[in-house]
């Protein structure tokens, strides 16, 4: 009943950030089509260990598409060919027997390769630290229903907040732009009434940090949206542009 396939994997191997990497080809037999993509890599790794070779290092954790840890470009597309699907939720039935699969790490200057398919995504954390929060201390919050929030606003904020911070947007962007990630966070918090007091500061600080980390600019081509496992929309980027411009205009004319 279980269908299996034989594959050729072309995997990026790189010892660490300081050394150059290269592709290595591995044949892999009897992969169940019910396996997930990462389970397929598990099989490869078990075989490598058996041969006394170092297994392919890749980031992964929850394997249910929500933690955002897994990060690999499969046949040129971040997270592989299935729309709105992380690599861990991608299943082998979307590939066919005899296929060659090219697996590469995210490629972006701000995300240096640490080993094989693992990249360093801490720039995302630093963008968050610059302004991705609503200031307030535990214990001083007012009654939750004291401030009604229209359903539409809450839904929009949720659409933005669904971002899992995987970095596929950066990986897919030919400019390695982090606009979709930054915009999702800004759109989430700037659209909620709680986030309004810090709206301008947030947009300015997060964009400044984003640029400072060495991400490229947005050319509005939409590759980020196409690979985003949570289907974050380019609308969020429009909002970031708008909020950023408004914040800048205000800062031109602010009283000194």
């Amino acid at each position: 009943m279980e269908k299996t396939m034989n594959l050729t994997l072309k995997v990026w191997r790189q010892k660490n950030a300081a050394t150059d990497g290269q592709f290595v080809e591995y044949p892999l037999k009897d992969v169940s089509e019910d396996s997930s993509f990462l389970e397929m890599l598990d099989i490869l790794n078990e075989e490598l260990v058996e041969q006394g070779k170092e297994p392919v290092a890749f980031d992964h954790d929850c394997r249910e598409g929500i933690c955002g840890t897994c990060s690999m470009t499969i046949n040129g597309t971040a997270h592989g060919p299935q729309r709105a699907t992380t690599a861990c939720q991608l299943h082998m039935r979307h590939f066919h027997d005899g296929q060659t699969i090219t697996i590469e790490p995210w490629r972006a200057k701000p995300f240096p390769v640490m080993k094989d398919l693992i990249v360093d995504r801490t720039p995302f954390d630093r963008i968050m630290q610059a302004g991705g929060f609503i200031t307030g201390r535990a214990g001083s919050a007012v009654e939750a229903n004291a401030m009604p929030i229209p359903k539409g606003t809450a839904d929009y904020a949720m659409d933005a907040a669904a971002c899992i911070g995987c970095g596929a947007c950066v990986a897919a962007c030919p400019n390695a732009s982090a606009m979709l990630f930054t915009a999702a966070k800004v759109a989430h918090m700037n659209s909620l009434p709680q986030g309004k007091p810090e709206k301008d500061r947030r947009a300015l600080a997060m964009v400044t940090t984003m640029d400072g980390e060495g991400f490229g600019g947005c050319t509005n081509i939409g590759e980020c949206e196409a690979v985003c496992p949570k289907e974050i929309s380019l609308d969020m980027i429009a909002q970031l542009n708008r909020d950023y411009a408004a914040a800048q205009v205000k800062s031109f004319f602010k009283a000194v």
């Binding site: 072309k10 470009t73 490629r107 200057k109 030919p174 390695a176 060495g214 991400f215």
Partner: peptide
């Protein structure tokens, strides 16, 4: 800036 941000391209 964009080229600096993405010096390497994908094989595929």
């Amino acid at each position: 800036d964009n080229k600096r941000a993405r010096p390497d391209s994908y094989a595929a």
